[in-house]
Design a protein around this nucleic acid. Structure first.
Lengths: 235, 235
DNA sequence: TAAATAGTGCCAGAATTTGGCACTATTTGA
DNA sequence: TCAAATAGTGCCAAATTCTGGCACTATTTA
């Protein structure tokens, strides 16, 4: 058992179990209590945030926000970063824009070219504007991370998207639409889609969308979407 | 000189110089030829592709394709990305937060541990809130990318910061202050600092700050900064 | 108050890393 | 063809670091 392996084992164990005591970890990875404590110390040095509590029922806990051991960025992660920074810049909220941009350019360069094409085409579907002040933003939910890859595929392959939608009154319905654009009106994000049943465009708040699935083998054409004056493309 | 640090130094050197011989690296990082060769071997184990050529004019070369995506980012670029995404998340404007976070975690992981610590400490100085609606945001300038490294150093080393400040009327003055926090009230960014001349806190709009320099050898203590209710720490 | 917990300092022995040396294999230039 | 320059390997003793054990302290909970 290597030092690196032992520390990885500790991190895995903490991630899996939530809370462990030093004694449990010691038993589990086969090292003394003292060594575990030293490892915890060095993991903290490496940037892992590990909370600890003394007393009965206490123990060590890995902050879930803390670092992961894996190394390479997945394409989805790069997408998420790019969208974040691009939308922020468009909103004018981004200081040090030059630096962040340069960083992203380098990340882009490291991706396979076909992925970059996809990425750009996806970004082309993004629009940003300002929210009308009378809109109530007190109940903004969290978007599901699972939505991103689904939307990406739907936009790129022009696939009909079916999802569950919960409207403002809490009523849930199932929709099947042509995703045409994504609209950011901070802090709200909308899916702008053509609804064939209603024969019109509809806006869906993204934090109210769940369980997206594709309708395979059925594609659609892009439609011209008309936005208000205060809305413009992200790039 | 730690093993990890030495290996990092080797990678940096190869990245910088293109080709190096074992003897050069040995000289540069202060380890024996044998140790360098062992390190190269273990770097290869870790996934770095290092080409080697024997004979005159030969040496070691790091395959640029083999670099991890993040390895090419400068620390300042990573700072910029992190600050952007962290502030965006705090503002609630960030969808797919999980994905972007995971990407950033991996990027962080690729940085030297001491940088990660610095980074976290810097992020601890960031606060975010909402701007009072009566504030005029029609004349928001661009922040100088040069400000970021300067602020980073000032916050981490607690150095007095001297800069030129242009007030709302266009009048320019030179200030020398204790930087205590950075406040984001989208789309404006402020430096919150203690002004010893006025014996009080002052807010400086960051797009009106230029030519920052340190006052060497003069540090200050952190003060408790009181913010409005709508302001909270970024992390 | 006792038990359970994290955390620290110290030391001797265990384990690993390092440098040095002798060696092999390959390439280049004279 | 030969010598020099280079990468790479095996081995060993010395240097360094890691580890476990122990005795502590501090804090929390039942």
């Amino acid at each position: 058992m290597n030092v690196r392996m032992r520390k990885d084992a500790i991190v895995r164990s903490l991630r899996r179990n939530g809370t462990s005591t030093v004694a449990q970890l010691s038993e589990e990875v086969g090292a003394s209590r003292r060594t575990i404590l030293r490892d915890i110390c060095s993991l903290r040095d490496e940037g892992f945030v590990i909370h600890s509590e003394t007393g009965r029922g206490g123990g060590l806990q890995l902050d879930p926000q803390s670092l992961q051991t894996t190394a390479r960025l997945s394409v989805a992660e790069v997408f998420a970063l790019l969208i974040s920074v691009a939308s922020m810049r468009a909103a004018g909220n981004l200081p040090f824009a030059g630096l962040a941009d340069r960083g992203l350019e380098k990340i882009e360069k490291a991706l396979p070219p076909d992925k970059v094409r996809d990425l750009r085409r996806f970004l082309d579907c993004l629009y940003i504007g300002t929210l009308a002040p009378q809109i109530d933003t007190s109940n903004v939910g969290k978007m599901d991370a699972e939505l991103l890859p689904a939307f990406e595929t739907a936009f790129l392959k022009r696939l009909y998207l079916r999802f569950a939608y919960q409207d403002a009154k809490g009523a849930t319905s199932t929709r099947c639409v042509e995703p045409q654009a994504m609209l950011i009106l901070p802090p709200l994000w909308y899916l702008v889609a053509w609804d064939p049943e209603r024969n019109d465009f509809r806006h869906f708040r993204m934090d109210r969308i769940s369980a997206p699935t594709f309708v395979e083998g059925k594609t659609f054409r892009r439609r011209h979407v008309h936005f208000d004056d205060n809305v413009r493309p992200v790039r």
